[in-house]
């Protein structure tokens, strides 16, 4: 944090972060993430998908993707998306995100300004 960041705001930010982490959606999300990372089958699939994504982007720049490679990639993607641990992780992540949006609305209502608009765009 910068030296100009007000101390009472820092304390309130810390308290909010701690309570969010201790909320049910975030506990479930954390558990799903841990389980996904410790599941060797899911981990292997995700590593394979990541390698296939890199390979496809590389081939795309070189202009040499074959239909077969696209098919293989789609099959791998479908396999990841049907993996039970991955589905559980995605659902938990979505619930945590939805919960965070509710909290953002609470902050915005209290503030009288849209807080998420003040924190800027998500990209870049």
């Amino acid at each position: 944090m910068s030296t100009t960041f007000p101390k009472p705001l820092l304390e309130a930010t810390n308290a909010l972060a701690e309570n969010l982490l201790a909320s049910e959606p975030f506990i479930k999300f954390d558990r799903a993430r841990t389980e996904l990372n410790s599941d060797s089958e899911a981990k292997t699939l995700l590593d394979q998908l990541s390698a296939a994504q890199s390979r496809l982007s590389q081939l795309q720049t070189q202009g040499g993707i074959t239909q077969e490679e696209i098919e293989q990639y789609r099959e791998l993607q479908a396999e990841v998306q049907s993996n039970a641990k991955f589905i559980e992780y995605q659902n938990a992540q979505q619930s945590a995100t939805n919960y965070l949006r509710e909290i953002n609305q609470e902050i915005s209502q209290q503030l009288g300004l849209n807080f998420s608009a003040l924190v800027g765009k998500s990209c870049g």
């Binding site: 309130a12 609470e106 915005s108 209290q110 503030l111 807080f115």
Partner: peptide, 11 residues
């Protein structure tokens, strides 16, 4: 705690 955070920001 979200309301407390908003109050701290408003101050």
């Amino acid at each position: 705690s979200a309301q407390d955070f908003a109050r701290a920001l408003a101050e």
